[in-house]
Amino acid sequence: MNAYQACFSKLDRAALIPFFVIGDPSYDVSAELVKAAIDAGADILELGIPFSDPVADGPTIQKADLRALKAGMTPARAIEFIREITAYKPIPIGLLVYYNLLVQYGVNRFFEDFKQAGGTSVLVADLSIDDADEIIPSARRVGLETVFMATPNTPDGRLRFISEKTTGFIYAVSLLGTTGERAALSQTVRPFLSRLKRLTDKPICVGFGISSPEHAFEVAQAGADGVIIGSRIVKFIEENPENPARIKENITRFIRDVLDKLPPQSPKSRPSS
């Protein structure tokens, strides 16, 4: 059983997965905020290494990437960061990274270092399933899980292919678009989730645009195994650049609100295919 299966099988609700850009707004504050999210009850973490050209991201995460880069975040320091977090408390960590950063570090070496720091899975934002074999052997060798994105416009055949290559969870993108807060949950989520559930028995976590406890509730209600909340969390940092204590308070409260809202579900015991 991998770390995700262990997590999903002990929960009687959908997993709450906050996203942070590592080192936003600085190494120390970022570490404090991530630890606060764990203390508030986050089940899994999705962490991103900042990149100069994040094409899959909307304005909120773009700005977070810039803040983190300005404060000196690098892939090597991101590994240290992850080590510090998993030492604080063991928690499954999924990494989101743009491919060029991996390629420059060296895929094999990066995966070894990330695994060693306690990481669980990798998702490469700009590497599609067609080229997944550029990283899968390296991931399997060190025992990292692979996570891939599926989008509402992905055809059935491709979704099956994505499912086959996934050992962690399927990252279901709720809409056609980049990351970013949205006022309303996308209409495509429900039909997309039911299509996905017909095609795969892998855990499915939904992300992009989930901005409130109500959105999280709806997604969980529709059968998601996990809810990924990115821009809304990151926005708390943008809103109070000079006040880490306030950011921490806001994030803690938000996570508790979401947890209160998540409906009960029977625990998943997923086949470990």
């Binding site: 094409v55 899959a56 491919y99 934002a125 700009d126 590497l127 599609s128 399933i129 067609d130 080229d131 891939f148 994105m149 599926a150 989008t151 416009n153 992905t154 055809p155 491709r158 994505i162 993108v173 056609l176 678009g177």
Partner: peptide, 11 residues
């Protein structure tokens, strides 16, 4: 070359 893009653009 290749096509290193997010999944959503592949179709």
């Amino acid at each position: 070359g290749g096509y290193y893009v997010p999944e959503v653009l592949i179709p």
